[in-house]
Amino acid sequence: MESRRSFLKVAGVAALGLGTTPALKAVAASGEAGGGAPQPQVKKGAKALTAKQWAMVIDTRKLQTAADVEPLIEACNKIHNVPHFNNKNHEIKWIWETEFKHAFPDKSNSFLNESVEHRPFPVLCNHCENPPCVRACPTKATFKRESDGIVLMDFHRCIGCRFCMVACPYGARSFNFRDPKPFIKEMNRKFPHRMKGVVEKCNFCAERLAVGEMPACVEASQGAIAFGDLYDPHSPVRELLKENFTIRRKQVLGTEPSVYYIV
């Protein structure tokens, strides 16, 4: 993807950016035996969870009321420093609840069974296998991580053009129309927040997977949400997909969402 990356692997940490030569010399000088000195490296943490494509199965039968869904939304907002705005225009949403007819506008019948009609549906970024937002981004600030299929944001690189928001058919992306800091109720000091002018969205808790934890909403869902590797036939996700009929949002668009719903 980036020639810069492969170059890095060869030259080690010092070779990045414009200061290549002096930096390299500095490292070489610090090594005990010159050429044979060990180079600094980067790697995944020992506890990191990995997958070919992370996926989620939401059993909405187990999330009947708003009281069932709100804790998992709250868990996400708290961990990721998602701000709360009273002005609807400026809203930031990673995972939120909506009605069936809004989550699945193309699957909604005039006469639905009552349980489904009133059930709160959690919706979030679908971490599509063919993400249109990634296609649209002019700087690769949003990208599909090759190692595990998560669609991520590089907030350092985002120029705030909002093309990805236009491209997303699920309304999963939010833009920081103003500095979010004053609107974060309780700052999680272990996780960064965002600055004005960049787009953000659900990151499938990439930071938690990296240290061996399940996503926050999955953990808070008390078994209503399963999470695992879509391409591992024995993953909890695949077990559920085998046993239950599931639907995905706007399948007809060919984006291949990784979030499945049991209705």
Binding site: N87, K88, N89, F177, R178, K196, G197
Partner: peptide, 15 residues
């Protein structure tokens, strides 16, 4: 200084 919040744009109408 403030951000694009001074405009009428929103999460839904992002342009």
């Amino acid at each position: 200084d403030f951000g694009l919040g001074i405009t009428g744009m929103s999460r839904d109408v992002s342009w």
